[in-house]
């Protein structure tokens, strides 16, 4: 490993799907523009939060960089090796260096396998450990994620959602990955369990120096967990920067509206008066110019007419808005 090379470097990643329309009579070819030129760098040991609403392309991004989904163009350098159009050998290597944690804790596990077997399988397939020590290592991994090791013989359906998610994390760790992509991995859990999993991830990250891409729609969780945040809207990053700076001084109007919409547990803070109107448009027909302009409270004609604004800013805090705006939404302190 070369320390000067970032762990992951994504340049101009584009993912377009051929969308099938649902209409009975109008069968027109439509392209879903899920990701439109996304660039990003993740250094070793860093946790990046990727936030955005549904349809923003954040999950597509997570899968594309792990080569679990198709990508249309762009480059993905993992530890300096190009995997975007890599050989099957490169992909196999990428799979040994990365792991994914899924949203649905039950769905991500084979319902016909005990959770112990599911973890053991990873170790056997990748020859991580001699067969004699297999059981020991499985128990060790389960203990690492705070699971009762007795539960190794259970199947997913006999476990709770939180327990299944712990197994999902243990299985990801079994591969000893250098990068974990966690896709909405606490969204399906109850609040009291969410906290347990977030804390587990924080502890594991400290203990194992993990690099992580944490994909979530819940900004409060991202704020707790991540070193850096990238906010996505309609397949583009609109703001990116160190967590504290993005949350304390968001530059892009979309980020500002997202942050102001987080419901806080404070009975004296009513629903904000100024709400972001509308909903994200379909990724099939993107608006001209800045994709956010139809919902943007400060949009002007030039937002629609000029080309897509580039990310700019200083000290690693970048925003893709042609106005270097002050906050127009009331921000929580």
């Amino acid at each position: 490993m070369n320390s000067s090379v970032p762990l992951l470097e994504v340049n101009d990643l584009v993912v377009h799907f051929a969308g099938s329309t649902m209409g009975l009579f109008n069968r027109s070819d439509q392209t879903v523009k899920a990701l439109n030129s996304v660039s990003m760098t993740i250094r070793s040991g860093e946790t990046l939060g990727l936030v955005g609403e549904s349809g923003s392309g954040k999950s597509t991004f997570g899968r594309a960089i792990l080569r679990l989904g198709e990508l249309t163009s762009g480059s993905v350098l993992f530890d300096g090796v190009e995997v975007a159009n890599g050989t099957s050998g490169d992909i196999a290597w990428l799979r040994r260096e990365t792991a994914m944690v899924f949203q649905d804790p039950y769905g991500a596990l084979n319902p016909r396998m005990t959770v112990g077997d599911a973890i053991a399988e990873v170790l056997t397939v990748h020859n991580k450990i001699p067969t004699a020590k297999l059981n020991e290592r499985v128990q060790e991994l389960l203990a690492l994620v705070g699971m009762d090791t007795e539960l190794a013989s259970r199947r997913p359906a006999d476990l709770s959602g939180g327990q299944c998610q712990r197994v999902g994390i243990a299985r990801a760790l079994a591969i000893e990955p250098r990068l974990i992509v966690a896709d909405e991995c606490v969204a399906a859990l109850d609040v009291s369990i969410q906290g347990q999993i977030i804390n587990l991830l924080i502890e594991l990250r400290e203990k194992m120096k993990l690099s992580m891409i944490f994909i979530a729609h819940d900004l409060a969780i991202v704020r707790r967990l991540c070193d850096r945040v990238a906010v996505m809207y309609l397949g583009r990053i609109v703001e990116e920067g160190p967590t504290d700076r993005v949350f304390n001084a968001p530059c892009h109007p979309y980020t500002q509206s997202l942050i102001s919409a987080i419901p806080e547990i404070d009975p004296d803070k009513p629903l904000p008066e100024q709400l972001l109107g509308g909903e994200p448009p379909s990724p099939i027909s993107l608006p001209n110019g800045c994709a956010f302009h139809p919902r943007c409270p400060i949009a002007q004609d030039k937002c629609r007419d000029s080309p897509v604004p580039a990310l700019r800013g200083e000290d690693g805090h970048l925003s893709a808005c042609i106005f270097s705006s002050e906050s127009i939404f009331p921000q929580p302190t």
């Binding site: 899968r63 679990l68 799979r95 949203q103 769905g107 084979n110 990873v122 397939v125 299985r171």
Partner: peptide, 24 residues
């Protein structure tokens, strides 16, 4: 998800097909 998970863990096509998908 569990099939995609199996792919993401670097399992061979044969293993994903016959060990994970087929029993289900």
């Amino acid at each position: 998800d569990f099939a995609i998970a199996a792919v993401s863990l670097g399992y061979s096509h044969k293993r994903v097909m016959f060990r994970h998908l087929l029993p289900n």
